[in-house]
Amino acid sequence: MYEHVPQPRGRRFFIEQERGVTDVRVEVGLAHVRVRTGSGEEALQRHLQVLDAIAERGVSISLVKLHEEWLTFAVKQSDVPTVSQCLDTLGMEYKIVPNLALVITVSANMRESAGVMAQIAESLWEAGAHIIETGDSHNTVQCFVPEERAFAAAQALRRRFRLGEVAP
């Protein structure tokens, strides 16, 4: 039924990973897209119209958020011309903020850690990195910030959470 693969074990053996923030990563070369979709039933149709049209062009999106009157999402910087052309074709009102980066804070169980968001926001504030959008999952908080401040933001976060330095 089961195969046994013997492995040497020491007397002291560390079992569970550390709690709290364990890593900070940076992803560069991104842009943030805001499309005015209006409100009510019309907005729902426009959400689908925009998302379908972008998907048809093979563009992958992330950090999708629904706001009053707006649909926002992130794309790779290299996809910006395709997305612009697509939204122009649809006749949409939109704005694209280029040269952004995602600063990703990784923690074992983010949604059970009260106060992490405050510490992240404080670190980014100190680093002069204005948050444009955020996303979160059970093990990450992702902050969209201007690329030029991303590494300063990551260093501030690593200092705050007592992690090693990150190479730019």
Binding site: K65, H67, E68, W70, T72, R111, E112, S113, A114, G115, M117, A118, Q119, A121, E122, W125, H130, I131, I132, E133, T134, G135, D136, V141
Partner: peptide, 25 residues
Amino acid sequence: KPEIELQLYRLMAQADVNLYLNSYS
């Protein structure tokens, strides 16, 4: 706005409240 947001986060942290689905516009 960024300062108000930061104050809100601090307030939630002091009250030991977990936050989900953070979003900015």
